[in-house]
Amino acid sequence: MTELLSVSNLRLYYRTTKGVVKAVDDVSFNINRGETLAIVGESGCGKSSLSKAIIRLLPRNVHTYEGKVLLNGTDLMSMDEETFRKEVRWRKISMVFQGALNALNPVLKVGYQVAEPLIIHMGIKEKEAIERAKEILVKLGLSEEFAERYPFELSGGMKQRAVIAMALITSPDLIILDEPTSALDVITQANIMNMLKELKKSREQTFIFITHDISVASELADKVATMYAGQIVEIAPADTFYEEPLHPYTQKLMKSVPTLRRDKTLESIPGAPPNLIDPPSGCRFHPRCERAMDICRKEDPPIFERGHSVKCWLYR
């Protein structure tokens, strides 16, 4: 398997009136072609910022944006904004947004919107592009007539499919799915997940799947990364991740997942996620960690390899 995306030492800091928010702090990982990497973590841990840093969709108040992002060996960080827009966005990397239900322009017809990346990037004529959009909508289980409808006429699941169709239409190398099923009911969620699995198999599509829901991530992921306070604390192949997570934070996360019809007290993690403006010294998880040691308070742990990568002093 060839390496598709390699991210190393990626940093994204925001400037706010209260100080610098270290939303993504020294993140490294890589993904092979056809693989799916799930990134899990609590709200506010920097998952969405990471996805935005990869597709370079930055707000105005960026303080630091640095690191190395290689896609197929091409350095994305050295590209200027205009080249990046034309060459990378949607041609190479596309994205399904968090809150995809609002990601459609209410005044444009669905078919036209799904076709829009083709019109913009491939210079394909509107009519042909809309035909291709219809094909892809049909593949995703929406009938052709929906192309002629406006977004408000579609249900949540249909909109989600349309948004995924939009991400697929240019056949990008990488699709970032940012909480694609969070706002949907379980049946629709299952539907969409099955569809994504099908896509993964048939097209050998590479995904980065960002979610706060570990159980949903297990459906699709080949590798799972846990993010905490702007850092990736553990990356493991899916099987080991769910069977024997190493990092205390991941372990806690696993215990907080509800199980159907089994009497189990759900565990929560005491305390709140740390403030990213002034993160705790040493290991960022230590104030909430039951197994914290002296060294945890003082020194930031490096990444240890114990079958897979984990960023914890326990595995020294």
């Binding site: 209410p106 829009e116 913009i120 948004v163």
Partner: peptide
């Protein structure tokens, strides 16, 4: 700052396109 404008920026719509097709009609 609405999601669909952000989405449009992500899929590479030009500024002119976003202003005329996404913002002004609204």
């Amino acid at each position: 700052t609405s999601p669909y404008v952000e989405a449009a920026i992500a899929y590479g719509a030009s500024n002119l396109r976003i202003i005329t097709l996404y913002i002004l009609p609204r």
